[in-house]
Computed example of a mutant assay.
Amino acid sequence: MTTISPEEPSLVLIVDDEPFIRMQLRLSLQCEGYRTVEAQDGREALTIFQQRRPDIVLLDAIMPDMDGFDCCTQLQCLDSSKYTPILMITGLEDQESVDRAFEVGAIDYVTKPIHWPVLRQRVKRLIQQSQLQRQLEAANQELQRLVTIDELTQVANRRRFEEYCAQEWQRMAREQLPLSLILCDVDFFKSYNDTYGHQAGDRCLQAIAKAIKNTVKRPADLVARYGGEEFAVILPQTDAEGALVLAQTICYAVSTLAIPHNNSQVSSYVSISAGIATEIPHPNSDFQAIIAAADRALYQAKTEGRDRVQLYNKQSSPTITVYPFPP
């Protein structure tokens, strides 16, 4: 039986130049079950913050060298501080000091002499709010991932494909760099489904998607299920030659899966056809142009007999046929 270990207690960073105040804070917070770490000035606090990633910072406003206001400002510049609340502890109650504390990023403040029940409640509330914010962000990210991922194949879906294609088309237009697109279609897939059943067809698509994804290495490249048995690969900053090599490698990777297909008219195993288009986009042009070109190349590949790569080239001949070869 698997046991679930309890969550580690929250870590509180105490920043104060007075040892007695730090001791009081440490003992009070440890009695509430928190872990603590201490810094005696702002500079030490910045170092410890990056090393330990506390769940909350209790920050004295008035300290020598770097005061709490400057320290708070610098903490806000750290990426890891996004969800870490800062509670300012100050002996100043004038409106200007309070306004400044919030301006530099403090979430709340307490005044000296410290009212301990108030401090404990505020620490508890701020940590809870921070944890809820993190959970909400994680849930939103997961929701966004689910919205853009094809459930069956776990690659990007059509919606994400079009968003990313439009984004990279505009970026390549600004930088005047090439964008390539590969459209892939599983050869005789309807016949495969009719022969082996739809569950086998789903497993076939999953295996092909994984093979394509494993072949496409660069983080900027996107593999997507374009629809049905069609897949697409968006390749920013890639010329026709580079896209051609990758398309051949993808075709070879699918052939090495050796998925039996007795009713295929081109091979005893599942194969794919691929169409490639490459464009240096014009400013204010539509990304649908490259999709149409790749689709024409894919149609030509299927017309020519399937199990091959077709490169669209509007400058010379409309298409160039290349048979896949082992890389």
Rank of each mutant, 00 (worst) to 15 (best):
H115R: 15
Q135T: 10
W116N: 10
Y164H: 08
D150G: 11
A156L: 13
I149W: 00
E142P: 03
I89Y: 14
R145V: 05
S97D: 14
L136V: 06
W116F: 15
V37S: 06
L119G: 03
E163W: 08
S130M: 07
R120F: 14
R52C: 06
D79V: 01
S97I: 10
Q176M: 15
Q154D: 10
E44F: 13
D99V: 12
T84A: 03
R145F: 10
R53N: 14
L78N: 05
Q131F: 07
A106S: 15
Q141L: 12
Y34M: 03
A45M: 09
C71Q: 01
A139I: 07
D79E: 07
E162V: 08
T36F: 06
W169Y: 14
N157H: 15
L59Y: 11
Q167T: 09
M66R: 00
R125F: 08
Y109E: 00
D55C: 01
Q76Y: 04
M66Q: 03
P85A: 00
L119W: 03
I56M: 12
M66F: 01
R159M: 12
W116M: 15
R160K: 13
E163L: 12
Q129K: 09
R174V: 12
G33L: 01
K82M: 06
Q121F: 09
R174C: 12
G33A: 01
T90V: 00
R100E: 10
A39N: 03
E175W: 13
I149T: 14
Q133R: 02
D41R: 00
D65N: 09
S97V: 07
L87Y: 06
V104A: 04
I48E: 02
M88L: 15
Q133V: 03
D65G: 04
G42C: 04
P117C: 05
F102A: 00
T36W: 03
A166V: 12
Q74A: 15
E142N: 11
V110T: 06
Q176L: 15
Y164N: 08
R134N: 01
S97E: 05
I86Q: 01
D79F: 02
G91L: 04
Q51T: 10
D67N: 13
R122C: 13
V37W: 02
R159F: 13
R100Y: 07
L87F: 05
